[in-house]
Each structure stands twice: as C-alpha cells, then as structure tokens.
Design a protein around this nucleic acid. Structure first.
Lengths: 198, 198
DNA sequence: CTGTCAATACCGACCGGTTGGTATGTTGCT
DNA sequence: AGCAACATACCAACCGGTCGGTATTGACAG
C-alpha cells in the first residue's frame, strides 16, 4: 500500500497538500479553485480526488497538522510540573516558533476557521479550545496563589498571547531581521512583566 | 430625490449593506453569493447593482466605515499632546470599544484584508499602516525617554495590542458579562504594567 | 390643480464563464 | 489477471454581472 514507483519528486499527496497550502494562504480557501491546486501540484483533478474525498479535506488536513503538534507539545510542557513562569514561557515559545514554522498553514486555517463547522472539524476545534483553556487555567491558578498579579483577567491575557500568534502570519518574515525565537522571548518577557506581582 | 414611498423598512442601500455585513462575517466574502445578499436584504440583483458597482464595493464600504472612524479618533487623541501612558490608554480604549461596536464589519474585513489589494483598497491599507506606525512611534519614543521599559520591542507590543482587536470578534459577545469598556481597561492595565519602567 | 417629461429606483430574465465533483479510461507494478 | 495510481473528458449547478424594461418620483408649464 501507499506510494511506490521510483518517481523523481516527493509523494504526490504531499505535493498536492503543499500546493493547496500556498494557494489558500495567498488567496483564501473559497477564492482558490481545485484546478489551480492541481495545476501547481503538477497533477490532474483525478489525482487529487484519488487522495482526498473533497476540497474541504485539504483544509482539515492543515488544521490537523498544526494543532496535533501544538497539543502534544503542550502536554509535554505541562507534564513537567514546573512553576507558572517557566511553564508560560515554554508555552509561548512553542506556539510562536511552531506557528512561525507553519505560517502558511496558520494563515489559511486562521482565516477560514470561523467558517469550518461542518462536523468533522468540531473535534479539532474542541482540541484548540482545550489548549486555550489550559493556558487560562494556568494563569488563573497562579493569580490565585499570588504568583501572578491579577492586573488583568486570564481571558484578556490569553487573548493577548493568541492574538499575536493568530496574526503572526501577517507580519512575520522568515528572512527578516528577527527570528521566531527572538519574537517569542520578547513576547514572553512582555507578558510576564505585566504579570509580575506588584 | 432619493427614497420616498411609505415603505416598511430602512433605506434600501443600508439594508443591502447590513445584509452583506452579516453574511460576510458568517461565511466569508467569497463564500457569499450576491444572490444571498439580495435575498436577505429583500431586493433583487438589479437593485444591488443600482447602488453598488461591484460586489467588492460592499467590502470597501465596510473597510471605510471602520477605519475612517478609528483614524479620526486617533488624530484627536494625538492632538491632545498628553503623556504616553494617557495616550496609549486612550488609543487602546478607542480601538477596543470601536471594534466591539462594529464587530461584524471587523470580522469580515480582518479576514479578507490580506486578499484585498485591488488598487482601490491600497489607500485604505496605507491608512491602517499609518495607524499602527503611530502606535509604534509612540512606544518607541517613550522607551527612548525612559518612560516605558524596553522589555519588548515596539513591534511586539503593538502586535500584542492589535492581535487582540483583530481576533476580538471570535470571542467578544455583546451580551456577555464583560462590556467592551471593561475589556479595554484590562488590556490597557496589562499592557502598561508590562511597559512600566523597572 | 392637472398634464407632461425626464430622471431615479428598482425588477427579473439572462449571459458567458467557472465551479466542485464524477465516470471512464490508461498505465505499470505485482 | 488484478489492483492502485493516476489522466482525460465531461457535467449540472452556480457564479458575478448586464440589460431592457417599468413604476414612481419631483420639477415645471399652463
């Protein structure tokens, strides 16, 4: 099963997915036709529909690629059981660097996320809500313990963090002067400075 | 001239715009057909194209509605010439409350903003860049003067602010427990706590 | 007050082009 | 032979936009 044949390029499935990712990020999901995807991927429609049941599956695949990585990283960070400051720094670093590494997928998904509620995406959206809730719970508990200042609610702080990552694709350039790691550190420093107990 | 007739509703042009706003916010621009817009507005396609030259004009109109208000408010705030903390608080308050008041328009525009580069939108996008640059310049100068801490670059701080407003529509509920004014204050408190000189 | 006229507001059928999706090959490995 | 991996040809539905037409209007004349 799976691919075989000593073909000259990468797997066809991967090529289709890469083409769709780029086009969705550039033009949006609805504005991109299946024909454009197969043209860029160098295959035909028959080939695409051999691997994917529908156009929407391409989006779902991107969604999964982003969030599965992020969620396993989150669980690994939380499992260490360290103090809130270290934990929040680790989360911010992972989400910024991870989103930057897949900024095309993030651009496509974050734009189309509101529209995607066609049953099969609900599980993925639930996972994402769990992620956000974990961050808020962390902040809430640390505020209760007096480790973090209650200057702002956990909701506003978490939206501040996720707002950066959601719009990261609009301003982050991989060949720019600031690597993702630096941005992550600056954001963590900034957020934690605001959360320092007064 | 203009409308007359003892019709039961508001002006036709406003009804079309309101219908388009709701549909674009729910489904996205490309996924919404002109037919859906005219159905919801209770007119026909001929009527819509009597008032608007193209489908895109509906988006441009929303764009203008949002940013013209925001830009005049910005200029008014800056014209007061007060200290950075007061100025930044005023800006954050205006942008959060203003965005919340027009969250459907904001949802539609913020999603479609990346795709819109068809000439007539470039002026509007330039205005928006000017807005962001004004905030960054404010922060940069205050950091140089030692009023704000250089813990994070003006870019990261401004992205943190605009990231919240850009994704405001995904979580803000006008009938929720927290009014927009409260969210604005929390965000301003949080941002300024992080910017307090150490 | 009434009749004329041009402009505005709006209708609904219609057009060429494109869409996502499918049915039917053809090819090459096992 | 049989089956997975694709290609080709094609379709019904729908898209944004146009256009000829009509109903309603206000301005002006007499």
């Amino acid at each position: 099963m799976g691919r075989s044949k000593a073909d000259g390029g990468a797997g066809v499935r991967e090529r289709i997915l890469a083409a769709a990712t780029g086009l969705f990020a550039e033009q949006g999901y609805d504005a991109t036709s299946v024909q454009q995807v197969v043209d860029r991927a160098g295959v035909t429609k028959g080939g695409l529909y051999h691997y994917f049941g529908a156009k929407e599956d391409l989006l779902v695949e991107m969604y999964r690629a982003i969030f599965s990585e992020r969620l396993t990283a989150l669980d690994a960070i939380l499992a260490q059981g360290r103090d809130p400051e270290w934990t929040l720094r680790a989360i911010i670093d992972d989400i910024v660097v991870g989103t930057a590494a897949m900024r095309q997928e993030s651009a496509a998904v974050s734009r189309e996320l509101a529209t995607m509620d066609s049953g099969r995406t609900q599980r993925l959206q639930a996972d994402w809500r769990r992620y956000q809730e974990a961050v808020r719970a962390l902040i809430r508990q640390a505020q209760r313990d007096g480790v973090f200042s209650p200057v702002a609610s956990p909701e506003v702080v978490s939206w501040s963090i996720f707002g950066v990552t959601n719009s990261l694709h609009t301003w982050f350039r991989p060949d720019g002067p600031k690597p993702a790691e630096t941005i992550a550190r600056e954001l963590a420093d900034f957020v934690l400075a605001g959360l320092k107990a007064s």
